[in-house]
Design a protein around this nucleic acid. Structure first.
Lengths: 205, 205
DNA sequence: CTTGTTTACTAAACAGTGTTTAGTAAGTTT
DNA sequence: AAACTTACTAAACACTGTTTAGTAAACAAG
């Protein structure tokens, strides 16, 4: 009597089909320029079908946001296995920015756009993906404290401060607020600001 | 023969009428929920009229973004007249966040949304408002260096690093990425992270 | 004062958008 | 074979930003 199981499998596969077609279109054309109808066309189903698998567009974007987190966590792995906790922290910072730079649409969805958070708020659910990722950072900061690199002792507060600094220039860059600097100066400025931040917390935290 | 002058005045007034009606609606309902038709209704003109005064919606949003910058610069004034340069820097940071908290729609337009930057990019113009505001920060950081508060000597890089840190938690907060912390903890965490950042740069920069 | 021209404005249309509803056809169960 | 359930869709609804063609008033020139 595996019919119900098969149906469930098919349902899951359909969700995946939609999600991956949507992701492909979004990454290719940007979020503003992709509609439910475009996605429906790509998978050769009617637009209404998508609403049988996702409550609304926010829910769909939330699904892609999840894929983004998987990708990011994976790309963080090499950083996490570095021996020195401070090196680990620096490498995590670099990878945060590099991920944003190489996957701007995913990063947008994960940390800037309203849509995925609205989907969560509607179900009044908690942002588990964000919590987990932040947890990685807190752990790393805690290791730095245990190793005596930082004198300050509240790892969560320190992690928040570090996340802010790295997220700040990443978000400003992505939303073109650093375009006021000429391209070569911009790259230099971001690199130097990051290095300066690292040196500052090494001395002052 | 003041006819052409009067016409120019009327044209300017009409722009202002549209801009302020638009701003009012945007601040009341948020940007996602206001259309050109809504604005047209509010001023009792047809939608097409708006396009005689603004190239497109991005241009209109850019206009409101400018009003936001005027407001922000004004609210920065008291900070700028503090005697001690480091106090000045701290107060600027506090006011950056307070402005965002009290004027989230304006802040969004100024530092997060794509629309106003797209309007600039189309005219391939430079972001003067951002440059001017960043200039204030650079000057303040330079004063801190001259006063010997900071040892590091590149004011622009240091300003970039400081802007990043303050913008980071502001943007994360505004885009609901800190909602994973319970409300009271969230306020505390932001406050503590800011204080920690201030203490860290005081010691380490 | 009557022309011709310019200006300011709008009705209506175009080409889209997210989403819902009512209905169909195939698969499954009895 | 009949009844029920599921998966799907055509078409509509109520919007969106934007453009076009046309009108009526304001102005300038003869």
């Amino acid at each position: 009597m595996g019919i119900v199981e098969r149906k469930e499998r098919e349902k899951e596969e359909m969700r995946k089909l939609i999600l991956e077609a949507a992701q492909k279109l979004f990454l290719e054309n940007g979020f503003e320029k992709v509609s439910i109808r475009n996605i429906a066309d790509a998978i050769e189903y009617s637009p209404a079908t998508i609403y049988l698998y996702f409550k609304d567009k926010n829910e769909l974007l939330y699904g892609i946001h999840n894929i983004g987190f998987h990708k990011m966590i994976q790309e963080f792995q090499p950083a996490l296995s570095l021996a020195d906790p401070f090196d680990r922290l620096v490498e995590m910072g670099r990878r945060y920015f590099r991920f944003a730079f190489e996957n701007p649409e995913h990063f947008d969805l994960m940390f800037i756009m309203n849509a995925p958070m609205d989907a969560l708020a509607c179900r009044d659910d908690i942002w588990d993906e964000g919590r987990a990722a932040f947890g990685l950072l807190v752990k790393c900061v805690q290791d730095c404290m245990n190793a005596g690199v930082f004198k300050y002792q509240d790892a969560e507060v320190a992690a928040m401060m570090i996340w802010s600094a790295v997220h700040g220039y990443t978000a400003l860059f992505l939303r073109k607020r650093l375009d006021m600097f000429e391209e070569s100066r911009r790259k230099e400025l971001m690199e130097d600001a990051f290095t300066l931040f690292i040196e500052t917390i090494r001395k002052g935290l």
